[in-house]
């Protein structure tokens, strides 16, 4: 396929419908249909399989990378951006060590393709503290000994930060359940629960 040609053609389609394309979103079915009708004549431009430009906004900083589309967010962070605080425990979505926030919501970076989270705000453990001032959740994990080997810890902390925002951590049982996407093989769970509850202002 002649990628350049296709790209130009798509560009023309988009240029003809600038406001509509920008206005497409949830709750605008008419505009949506219109855009689809206009675009149906185009062929999607594809990138890859070789390296392609990808911009990641991590901890408030934009990073420009050239990576293959198969690079996960986790490997982009660890192997390309030297942000190794995000951990690879299973690479299969079964342990939660790679938990990061994307637009404020916790996700597993190992099953996220980096190319799909461009233009989104990514927060990793390195972006949590304010200079030397630990985030309250980091400080609570330290005070409550919410870890041993420390490998699952960044994921636990980001999960816990997200959990408080989700307003699901109403009691001890709910903290346990909603922290169950983060496996700790050292078995620090009771201390993790204590740390989360202390930040949530719950007596432990």
């Amino acid at each position: 396929m002649d990628v350049g040609k296709v790209t130009r053609r798509r560009f023309l389609v988009r240029a003809a419908l600038p406001t509509i394309a920008a206005g497409v979103g949830i709750g605008s079915p008419r505009l949506c249909a219109l855009a689809q009708a206009a675009a149906s004549v185009s062929v999607l431009p594809a990138s890859g399989p070789g390296p392609m430009p990808v911009t990641l906004n991590v901890n408030g900083r934009a990073h420009e990378l050239r990576i293959e589309p198969r690079v996960t967010l986790l490997d982009a962070l660890r192997e390309r951006l030297a942000l190794t605080g995000t951990k690879k425990g299973c690479d299969q979505g079964t342990c939660g060590a790679c938990t990061v926030l994307v637009d404020g919501r916790r996700v597993n970076a190992c099953l996220t393709l980096a190319v799909m989270v461009q233009r989104k705000a990514i927060t990793t453990i390195e972006g949590l503290a304010d200079g030397d001032q630990l985030h309250p959740m980091q400080a609570a994990f330290l005070a409550h000994d919410g870890f041993q080997c420390g490998y699952c810890t960044p994921g636990q902390i980001l999960s816990a930060v997200a959990l408080l925002a989700e307003k699901r951590a109403t009691d001890e049982a709910s903290v346990r359940e909603w922290m169950s996407g983060n496996i700790c093989r050292c078995g620090a769970y009771p201390n993790i629960v204590a740390a989360v509850r202390s930040v949530a202002g719950q007596p432990s």
Partner: peptide
């Protein structure tokens, strides 16, 4: 006593073997 390496672990600064560049 709180772990003396705790700060490195809660900030993601502790470097494990696979993270040696």
């Amino acid at each position: 006593v709180d772990r003396v390496d705790g700060r490195l672990k809660v900030t993601g600064a502790a470097k494990y073997s696979a993270e040696i560049a």
